[in-house]
Each structure stands twice: as structure tokens, then as C-alpha cells.
């Protein structure tokens, strides 16, 4: 089980990432997520106009925040934090009130349509407990994702964090995210540019009734 002196985190080096979606596929297989929902995915944006165009991407997963709003707001403590920092959801306790989904600034939580409970990325806690790496990290062909214990100063992740410029998503939310990005593009990290289009789309189409 979770050891007290561990603090798990992930670094994603986007200079290495080739947006191959292998992490998405590995996660889908490991977590058995149904269609339409994803615990891990690759966000891709295009910037500029021809001939100066480039794609930027960002692998997305739960930030397993130190100060998780979801865990604070869960009325039944179904969402809780392990001592090693992983934010868990107790499947048997969750009542599906969806308040955690509404509170999460990263849109990483979803209702599993088959089980009718809330799920998300748990850094593959079951694999970590067995001494393995999370499925996405294990799969990543360019080793862009590094997972490990930040309390151990000799671990690979601590050394990468100490020697690289890293950023986190939505720092202003005061959540202290534990997924760090190297060389992430601002447009890919921001959700604002998506809003160019959403004024013109009917608001009701995303409603599930």
C-alpha cells in the first residue's frame, strides 16, 4: 500500500513527445474506459496561418493535485487523497452527485456510463502498488513521460524537475498540480482559444438528458 514518505508526480517532456496517442490507447486498455470518456488524452492545436503553421500538443491526465478541489468538495469522501498524493475515487462510496466534476478546473473527471460513478486517472495506483509504472509511462515510445517519487532527491523525476523549466496547468487555481510539463505551448495549455467557436454553437447539444 501507499508508503508515507513517497510523493508521486509526473513530468511530461513535450520536446520528446511525438503525439502518437499511445498513452491514450494504453490508458483506455488499462482503465477499460468506455467510449466517449477518457482518463488520458492528447490535446492538439494548430497555430498560425499558411505558410507559418505548426501543431502543438499536450498530453492530458489528472494532475493529482496536492490541494485537490474535488477531494475538498466531495460530500461523501469518496474522493480522497492517499498519503503518496494520488487522488482516488472509492467506487463503492461515490453517489454520483458530480459536484467533483463541476469543481475540477481540468475537466479530467467523467461519469463512467457503464458503472454510473465518477472516474479519473489514478496514476494507475494498482500498478504503482505492484511496483510497476503507470500504463501511459510504460507505453510511451519516446520516454517523454517520467513518473516517480519527488520526495526522493535521487529519483529521475526529482533530477529532471531540478534541472528543467517546468510549468503546470492553471496554477492560479491554487491546486498545486503534480503533473509538470516541459516546453508546453501556452495555446495548448489554455482553454480560452476554444471559446472562439463556442459562442456560435447551441449550448444545449452537450446536455445529457
Amino acid at each position: 500500500m501507499a508508503e508515507e514518505n513517497k510523493r508521486y508526480a509526473m513530468v511530461i517532456d513535450i520536446r520528446r513527445c511525438i503525439a502518437c496517442h499511445a498513452c491514450t490507447v494504453a490508458c483506455k486498455a488499462e482503465m477499460a474506459t468506455p467510449l466517449e470518456v477518457n482518463a488520458t488524452w492528447m490535446k492538439i492545436v494548430e497555430k498560425g496561418a499558411f505558410p507559418d503553421v505548426r501543431r502543438f500538443w499536450l498530453p492530458r491526465l489528472c494532475n493529482n493535485c496536492t490541494d485537490a478541489i474535488c477531494a475538498r468538495n466531495c460530500p461523501t469522501k469518496a474522493t480522497y487523497k492517499r498519503d503518496d498524493g494520488i487522488v482516488m475515487v472509492d467506487q463503492h462510496r461515490c453517489i454520483g452527485c458530480k459536484y467533483c466534476i463541476a469543481s475540477c478546473p481540468y475537466d479530467v473527471r467523467y461519469i463512467n456510463p457503464l458503472k454510473n460513478i465518477v472516474q479519473k486517472c489514478y496514476f494507475c495506483s494498482h500498478r504503482v502498488d505492484a511496483g510497476l509504472l503507470p500504463a501511459c509511462v510504460e507505453t510511451c515510445p519516446t520516454r517523454a513521460m517520467v513518473f516517480g517519487d519527488t520526495n526522493d532527491s535521487k529519483s529521475e523525476i526529482s533530477q529532471i524537475l531540478a534541472s528543467n523549466a517546468t510549468v503546470v496547468l492553471k496554477k492560479e487555481m491554487q491546486t498545486d498540480p503534480q503533473v509538470f510539463y516541459i516546453s508546453a505551448d501556452e495555446a495548448a495549455m489554455s482553454s480560452i482559444e476554444e471559446r472562439i467557436n463556442y459562442y456560435t454553437e447551441p449550448a444545449f447539444i452537450k446536455l445529457r438528458i
Binding site: K43, I44, A102, A187, S190, R208, I209
Partner: peptide
């Protein structure tokens, strides 16, 4: 917009949690 010409090619948006 502040990002110039940005177009989202792919992203996942989960459904609205709270309905009417």
C-alpha cells in the same frame, strides 16, 4: 484573440456534470 490564429484539432470535453 490573444493567441492569434489558433484552432483546436483535438481535445476531449466531458459532458456537463450538473443538469437542470
Amino acid at each position: 484573440m490573444e493567441h492569434g490564429d489558433v484552432n483546436v484539432v483535438y481535445s476531449v470535453e466531458h459532458q456537463l456534470p450538473l443538469i437542470m
